[in-house]
Design a binder for these strands. Structure first.
Lengths: 146, 146
DNA sequence: ATCGACCTTCCCATCATGGTAAGGTCAAGC
DNA sequence: GCTTGACCTTACCATGATGGGAAGGTCGAT
């Protein structure tokens, strides 16, 4: 199977297949006489594995570990469990961070009029505490002669 | 104020201050006779603005927009509102994606024994539907002579 | 004068992915 | 046999935000 066919069969682009090989995530593919890479069902299966793992947000290093466990008949499921749990924790940490951003922003957005006027609690917050905006100007000549 | 002092005062590394300048997010800093960048209170204020915005997950392009609105006395808070709302939505989309990953993984992790044995629903899932793992072998000689 | 701390610019690396260019190969149709 | 288009190969560049480092200039204190 050509790399293009393997790509179609696995949902991984040819580009990424070569990349995975170059980084050692995948073992070098077999080559045919013309230098073309040659893939079989096992390879496609591994590619789908990678694709699915990427879809679950695993990083390449983690996928390398998972893939190696997958290949290893002697694996302990404990190791898989550990990798997956660690990833869940990382995801939850990141989610919590982002949720915090959402909470803060939601408050600010709720308080913002969102109209023609320049006053805006969002900018005030970003400007370093309520009251900022242009606090460094003497606050004369309001609105730049318009 | 030197770049180092501005960095300390703003919480933005000197490295990033230069980077922000190079990308046009910040206007070129004033220079002293020796070529050193020279910062004032206004600059530090903008740097803090950027830092806070980064902390809320805004991308550089969005920050550029926010910063320009911040500087603009004639801004309409509507524009700030729009940028912030868009960002909230992006965050929520990403959070939902990641939460989906967490949900899937949590299910799998719960089902995984996490012991010495090789059987593992996590790998089975990654391997493309339940039942995978090494389905491409005749399934004889289980557990490789151990 | 010297030393350490600072500044400057420039280059490289990250991570996963896409794009592109230059060139080889193959299969189909003429 | 030759052309054409689709495919393959490698190699390089770009992304976004950040860190690291080198090579060299400057400053302030001893």
């Amino acid at each position: 199977m050509n790399i293009g066919e393997a790509a179609k069969a696995s949902g991984v682009t040819a580009k990424m297949i070569r990349y995975y090989e170059s980084t050692g995530l995948l073992r070098p593919a077999a080559r045919r006489g013309n230098g073309y890479r040659d893939y079989g069902a096992v390879d496609v299966h591994e590619l789908r594995f990678i694709r699915r793992a990427r879809g679950l947000g695993f990083e390449m290093v983690e996928i390398a570990e998972l893939l190696s466990l997958w290949r290893d008949r002697n694996r302990a499921s404990r190791d898989v469990h550990r990798v997956a749990s660690g990833h869940i924790e990382a995801l939850q940490t990141r989610i919590a961070e982002m949720q915090g951003m959402v909470d803060t922003l939601s408050n600010l957005v709720t308080c913002c009029h969102g109209d023609d006027r320049p006053d805006c609690p969002i900018l005030a917050d970003l400007g370093g505490g309520v009251g900022a905006g242009q606090p460094l100007e003497p606050a004369n000549k309001r609105r730049q002669h318009a």
